[in-house]
């Protein structure tokens, strides 16, 4: 379904810059994620991990560099020598192909789990509700919540809410999933279930970028670990290497704090 050449990366960032007013948060990020790859993004608080993820689905607009998803620039359409800024409707279309799960639990509180998972397909893709319902039920079953279909978010535990959020993102059949510390807001005993769902998703071949402090998960599931600090990529490579034998002093200092 994509026009992407077979070996082109799913996400490619070249010298991505982003500032909030005077504060330069991303100072030239270079990285690429292949289709089917799981990239884990680690780094200290404030290093710009969330900001980078938000740039990928255009919740933030980048100030410099080049960022493309599936071979197409984020937020722009190239035609000849010109870059045309995308209209709101086109941006929405692009976003609907990228799933995102946030750190803060943000299911829609006025809708049941099922309706949360159906909302995207029915309202954005205008699917018939019977088709959307069937898929939503299947997805809720897949994240282990077949019995919570009718529950409202405030009747679910944090871990259950986060799994519904994953199902909601998957309901749009995304080609890329972004996770922004999906387990940081959860009680320790609820983290496992969410990570299990993510692990299964990775095994199914989903392309994923995961901002996480769960080093065990990064080591087991990640194909690549990227360490960011101060708005730049300090070090990246295989999890084994980066997490056990980091080359940079800053990576070492960070890991010694979190491990």
């Amino acid at each position: 379904m994509s026009k992407r050449p077979d070996n082109a990366p799913m996400v490619q960032a070249k010298q991505v810059h982003k500032s909030f007013g005077r504060l330069e948060v991303l100072k030239g990020i270079d990285l690429s994620v292949d289709a089917g790859e799981v990239l884990c993004l680690i780094g200290p608080s404030g290093s710009g991990k969330s900001t980078f993820l938000r740039c990928i689905n255009h919740l933030e607009k980048i100030d410099g560099g080049e960022l493309s998803v599936d071979g197409e620039l984020v937020g722009y359409r190239q035609s000849g020598n010109r870059l045309y800024e995308l209209r709101d409707r086109e941006v929405c279309g692009k976003r609907s192909e990228i799933g995102m799960v946030f750190q803060r639990l943000n299911l829609f509180p006025h809708m049941s789990a099922l309706d949360n998972v159906m909302s995207g397909p029915v309202w954005v893709k205008k699917e018939s509700s019977s088709v959307a319902r069937e898929r939503a039920l299947r997805l809720l079953d897949r994240v282990g919540l077949a019995d919570k279909v009718k529950s409202y978010p405030n009747q679910l535990s944090g871990g259950q809410q986060q799994r519904v959020a994953i199902a909601r993102a998957l309901s749009m059949q995304p080609k890329l999933m972004l996770f922004d510390e999906p387990t940081s807001a959860l009680d320790p005993e609820l983290v496992g279930d969410v990570l299990d769902v993510m692990r299964a998703l990775a095994e199914d071949g989903m392309t994923m970028i995961v901002v996480t402090h769960e080093m065990g998960f990064a080591r087991e599931v990640g194909d690549t670990v990227v360490f960011m600090d101060g708005g730049v990529v300090v070090e990246s490579g295989e999890p084994k290497v980066v997490l056990t034998a980091p080359r940079h002093e800053r990576t070492r200092a960070f890991l010694s704090k979190v491990l």
Binding site: L59, D88, C92, S96, F102, N106, L107, F108, G120, V124
Partner: peptide, 27 residues
């Protein structure tokens, strides 16, 4: 209404109008 609600709606691809009508106003 929490800003996270708007973000979640937009990340699903909802337009501004849809986000307002379906997500923000009901809350």
């Amino acid at each position: 209404v929490d800003e996270g609600q708007t973000e979640a709606a937009q990340s699903l691809g909802m337009s501004k109008i849809q986000t307002l009508r379906r997500i923000v106003l009901p809350q």
